[in-house]
Design a protein around this nucleic acid. Structure first.
Length: 214
DNA sequence: GCGACAG
DNA sequence: ATCTTGTCGC
């Protein structure tokens, strides 16, 4: 029996009270992990990957994969319940705990301010940042054309994230606090983890590792 | 009722 | 996310 959507929404409302959006990171960040999930077998299997890299050098230190039967369908706003179990399993298989985790998806830039990055952070206590390839909610302003340009993502008067151009003339990404990282710090760290492509290196590596081509 | 809708 | 071939461009 699957949990109902309203039931999961209530869990989000409860867990969201534990999210910390102020900076509370290690004195020195030495490692950053990227996590992502893929759904092979026509969606029947969830395969999560976690890649640990040095920071700021971004050299790969370790990587892990975890597979589980898929339990829930994708429902906008409830993504974390579908992906988190496998992501947690992959993270636990890393040789060491990362100082920071970059997630594929939103942090507080979510209808109930509880995207996958927040959920992962609250469950593990780790510092997390949400990096979405597209917008879930809020009004986005177009940042300037060059790499490093950013604008704010707002929901009414509330600032919920930043729209960051990680590569000149390329579609921007949506950055938001996950847990224990402020928006300002998150935006800076994401740019520093994105020296070459549109997405941060740790997330790209996790993407490839989880990829549906075995 | 209508439009929007991470991965 | 996944289903899918070739093609344009650096």
């Amino acid at each position: 029996m699957l949990p109902s959507a309203s039931e999961l929404v209530q869990k989000q409302r409860k867990l969201s009270r534990r999210v910390v959006v102020e900076d509370d990171l290690p004195a020195a960040i030495r490692t950053v992990a990227g996590v992502d999930a893929a759904f092979p077998e026509g969606g029947g299997l969830t395969r999560a990957a976690a890649v640990l890299m040095s920071y700021p050098g971004l050299e790969t230190l370790d990587q892990a994969v975890a597979e589980q039967p898929t339990r829930l369908p994708y429902i906008p706003g409830l993504l974390s319940f579908r992906e988190l179990p496998a992501v947690l399993a992959a993270l636990e298989r890393l040789s060491s705990e990362p100082d920071l985790v970059l997630c594929d998806g939103q942090g507080i830039a979510h209808p109930r301010r509880f995207g996958v990055a927040c959920h992962l952070g609250v469950e593990t206590g780790l510092c997390t940042i949400g990096v979405g390839k597209s917008r879930l909610c809020g009004q986005a302003e177009e940042p300037d054309r060059q790499r490093g340009a950013e604008s704010l993502l707002r929901d009414g008067e509330e600032v919920i994230g930043s729209v960051l151009r990680t590569r000149t003339a390329v579609r921007p990404v949506f950055v938001s606090s996950g847990h224990r990282v402020s928006l300002q710090t998150a935006t800076r760290l994401v740019l520093e983890c994105t020296p070459r492509f549109r997405l941060p290196e740790p997330i790209r590596a996790a993407d490839r590792l989880a990829g549906t081509r075995d």
